[in-house]
Amino acid sequence: MKDLAAITAVYSEFATSLDAQLVQAERAADIARIGRVEHKQRIHDSAYFILIWGQLEAEINRVAELAVRNRRSSIRWEDRRAWDAHDPENMRAKFEDRAALVLDRLNVASDAYRRTIRYYGLRNGIAHGATLATGIDVPTIIGDLYRIAGELKA
């Protein structure tokens, strides 16, 4: 999660440039140009979202592997038997299950698990070219990803 501040700064610079292009197109009442700039904005937002999502996903994987290593090191079989099903060198669990290893699925108050799964769904929607969103407020999402990362427990 170390590059998120730099990502926000670069995102803001290019997003502001695209906003200015949109204002110019609107002043010229150029419908075709407005459509092109809006399309660029959606691509820009999506690209940065995928970039920041990748940082959270890597952190979830890292903490999940650490959780498995810690629990498998117990000498009490009662403590480690469920964890023995995971290989920290080769985690095959699907993403939702890896996230559930490090976030409390039932913690309604924080809702971090559900928010993570929603962002994962958004990431998949973008990857498959299927999102209905007009845009993504990347700095706001970055703030939320930081909060989620702060709740990961090995």
């Binding site: 906003d19 204002v23 609107e26 979202f49 958004l122 209905l132 969103a133 007009t134 845009g135 993504i136 407020d137 990347v138 706001t140 999402i141 939320d144």
Partner: peptide, 16 residues
């Protein structure tokens, strides 16, 4: 002030 979008992930509408 120009309304920019309502369905923006992370917020509930933006005005530039």
């Amino acid at each position: 002030l120009v309304p920019r979008g309502l369905w923006i992930i992370g917020v509930n509408g933006r005005v530039d």
